[in-house]
C-alpha cells in the first residue's frame, strides 16, 4: 500500500513540478565561482534545467562624484518604475563592427570596390577561342567553318574531303561514329590517342599536316598556300597571327588531302628560304607506325 501511495505522491509531485518551477539555486563553489541552476519551460511545454557556472569580478572604476551621483537617479517618464539596468525593449547590443583606422584606407577601399568592374576587366582579358581552328575569333567567323568540323566532333565528317578520310588511319572514318568500348580504344590507334586528349590542332588531320616554323612575321596565308599547293591538294593553311598587331607569330600549319603529298612537301620545303628566314617544316605529329 505504501508503495502505491508513494507512487501517487511521486506522480503528483511531478505534476506540480511542471506547473510550479523550483526556484533557482545558487551555490558558491570553493574556487570563487558560483553555480546557478535555474528552470524554465520551453515552447514544447517541457521543463528545461539550466546550469550555469559563473565567476563574478568586481571592476572598480573611479568616476567623478557628480557622475556617480547621477548613476543612482531614479528613472522617470516612460521608464518610471522600471528596474535598474538596461531594458531589452530600448537597449540592445548590435553586431560587432571592426573599426581599424588606417592611413591608406582610401586606397585599400578603391581596390576592394566594384566587383562588377573587376568582372568586366577579366572578361576583357579573356581570349576568344575558335572551336574549329583554335584561332582567336568566334567559331562562326572561322574561315574553316565550311571545311572543318568543330573540336570534339568527328574529324572525318568534317567536309567534302573524302580523300582525307581514305588516307587516314583505319581507326578513323565510318567506324569512328559507333561506340568503341574503353578497353578497345587503346588499340584503335588514333582514336585512342584522341581520347587521350591531344591538343586540337594535332588531333584532326594530323597525319597529313605539316608544322611550318620560322615563318617571317610579314608572311600571309596566301603566300604559304601558294608555296605548298605545288606538292598537292592543300585542305587548310593556318597561320598563327597576333591579335593586336595582325602580324604572323612565326608558325603555321598546312594540311594536305594526301599524306604522300605532305611527306614530299615536308622533304622539299624544309630549309626553304622564305622572305629573310629559312623555313623549318616537319610533320605536326609524328606517324605512330
Amino acid at each position: 500500500m505504501s508503495k502505491v501511495a508513494g507512487r501517487t505522491d511521486w506522480a503528483e509531485e511531478e505534476d506540480e513540478d511542471s506547473l510550479a518551477l523550483p526556484p533557482p539555486q545558487i551555490t558558491k563553489n570553493k574556487d570563487g565561482t558560483e553555480t546557478i541552476v535555474s528552470y524554465r519551460i520551453d515552447e514544447n511545454g517541457k521543463k528545461v534545467k539550466t546550469t550555469r557556472r559563473i565567476r563574478k569580478t568586481v571592476m572598480k572604476q573611479v568616476v567623478n562624484p557628480r557622475v556617480a551621483e547621477r548613476k543612482h537617479w531614479s528613472k522617470f517618464g516612460e521608464e518610471k518604475g522600471k528596474p535598474v539596468g538596461p531594458q531589452s525593449d530600448t537597449t540592445s547590443i548590435a553586431e560587432n563592427i571592426v573599426f581599424r583606422p588606417s592611413s591608406n584606407w582610401k586606397t585599400n577601399q578603391s581596390e576592394e570596390k566594384n566587383p562588377i568592374d573587376k568582372q568586366k576587366a577579366t572578361l576583357k582579358d579573356a581570349k576568344i577561342k575558335c572551336r574549329i581552328c583554335s584561332g582567336e575569333h568566334w567559331t562562326s567567323k572561322c574561315p574553316f567553318k565550311d571545311t572543318m568540323a568543330p573540336e570534339g566532333e568527328n574529324a572525318g565528317a568534317g567536309a567534302g574531303t573524302g580523300a582525307e578520310e581514305e588516307s587516314a588511319a583505319p581507326g578513323l572514318g565510318p567506324s569512328n561514329s559507333s561506340y568503341v568500348p574503353p578497353h578497345l580504344r587503346g588499340k584503335s590507334g588514333v582514336t585512342g590517342e584522341r581520347m587521350g586528349g591531344g591538343k586540337f590542332g594535332q588531333e584532326r588531320d594530323d597525319l597529313a599536316t605539316l608544322r611550318v616554323t620560322n615563318v617571317s612575321e610579314f608572311a600571309e596565308e596566301q603566300d604559304l598556300r601558294d608555296m605548298f599547293t605545288r606538292f598537292g591538294h592543300v585542305t587548310r593553311v593556318f597561320l598563327a597571327k597576333d591579335r593586336e598587331t595582325g602580324r604572323a607569330k612565326g608558325f603555321a600549319f598546312v594540311s594536305y588531302a594526301d599524306r604522300t603529298d605532305a611527306a614530299r612537301a615536308c622533304e622539299k620545303m624544309d630549309g626553304y628560304g622564305f622572305h629573310h628566314l629559312i623555313l623549318r617544316v616537319e610533320f605536326a605529329k609524328k606517324p605512330t607506325t
Binding site: 516612460e78 521608464e79 538596461p86
Partner: peptide, 11 residues
C-alpha cells in the same frame, strides 16, 4: 540614456 551601458534613464 546612460552612456556606459545604454540604459534609458527617462523621457
Amino acid at each position: 540614456w546612460y552612456a556606459a551601458n545604454g540604459e534609458r534613464l527617462g523621457t
